[in-house]
């Protein structure tokens, strides 16, 4: 019985199918908003789903790869990482399916799996564009990962727990976006870096390296990577809004808060020019990390009653 519920929660609700549809919806919302900001019409509501269906129907080409098992396995690992991460966050405003002290760290690791998989995928082919893309993706991980983690630790420290569910409950009465504004901004931008959204899309800058690490992917593999990315978008936004925007209790607050976060992210996407990889790294270590460390220090001092 327990196994059955686990499967249900992993594959149908709240993760799995539901999450997939949510991911497609968020993907559409993001694309549509960006398009409207840029004076374009934008895609119709079913476009992301149609894209994925089309990709599944297409032939998967396997050109010049070093390890075929890795080539086929990586998208699946990336997808399962995103699905597993979904179990620990208050998706759709419901309490997480699984919860244990310290699940915050696990979730952050699971979210990084996608980038690692993409890096490996790029390394696994002999395409020059993929290789440069993979190098950039992995370089970028070192830039935003630490500040992103530190930004999520701020609310965790204030709540006195490293359990997402507990922090979510604690946040109900504490809007950390107001008390820790720096952390909020950094978490938001770090999430954009994780998802390789503009201005952090150097790893897939089409005018330089075509499609970056995924250049050689086509058909099913590409579709799975895209789904994984859409899921990560939802999970990431859920995490950030649960921590910083007064927690997620109920379906309506969930949609209002997460879509608001996505709206902020589209504004950044539209307004900013792509950063070169050296500029990305410089930005994160020179400003992001230092600011969030200062924030963390203040939180610690406040928690210890020194402020």
């Amino acid at each position: 019985m327990n196994t059955l519920t686990s499967f249900f929660s992993l594959l149908i609700f709240p993760a799995g199918l539901t999450l997939l549809l949510a991911g497609m919806f968020y993907d559409w919302f993001d694309r549509k908003l960006v398009a409207r900001f840029q004076n374009r019409v934008g895609p119709r509501w079913f476009q992301p789903i149609a894209d994925v269906i089309k990709l599944f129907a297409k032939e998967q080409i396997t050109p010049g790869i070093k390890n075929p098992a890795l080539f086929f396995g990586l998208p699946i690992v990336a997808l399962s990482g995103a699905l597993a991460a979904a179990l620990y966050v208050p998706l759709l405003g419901f309490a997480p399916v699984h919860s244990f002290p310290g699940d915050l760290i696990v979730t952050i690791y699971l979210l990084s799996l996608l980038t690692i998989c993409m890096g490996l995928a790029g390394w696994n082919t002999s395409s020059r564009f993929s290789l440069i893309g993979a190098t950039r993706a992995l370089t970028q991980v070192f830039a935003y990962e630490a500040p992103f983690l530190l930004a999520l630790l701020g609310p965790a420290m204030a709540a006195g727990s490293w359990q997402i569910d507990v922090i979510n409950d604690y946040a109900r009465d504490h809007w950390f976006a107001i008390s820790q504004p720096v952390g909020f901004i950094i978490a938001l931008i770090g999430l954009m870096g994780k998802l390789e959204l503009p201005p952090f899309d150097a790893p897939e800058a089409e005018t330089e390296i075509v499609a970056g690490a995924l250049t050689e992917y086509s058909g099913r593999g590409l579709a799975i990577f895209r789904i994984a990315k859409a899921l990560e978008l939802v999970v990431g936004i859920t995490l950030v809004s649960a921590f910083y925007l007064g927690g997620l209790q109920g379906v309506v607050p969930f949609f209002v808060k997460t879509l608001a976060v996505l709206f902020l992210m589209t504004i950044f996407q539209v307004l900013l020019t792509r950063l070169r990889i050296d500029q990305t790294v410089g930005l994160w270590w020179r400003f992001g990390t230092i600011l969030v460390l200062a924030q963390l220090l203040i939180t610690i001092l406040w928690k210890g009653g020194l402020l």
Binding site: Q38, N39, A202, A205, V270, R274
Partner: peptide, 9 residues
């Protein structure tokens, strides 16, 4: 440069 908004406008 990756500034698509200016491109579109």
């Amino acid at each position: 440069a990756g500034f698509d908004t200016l491109f579109m406008y």
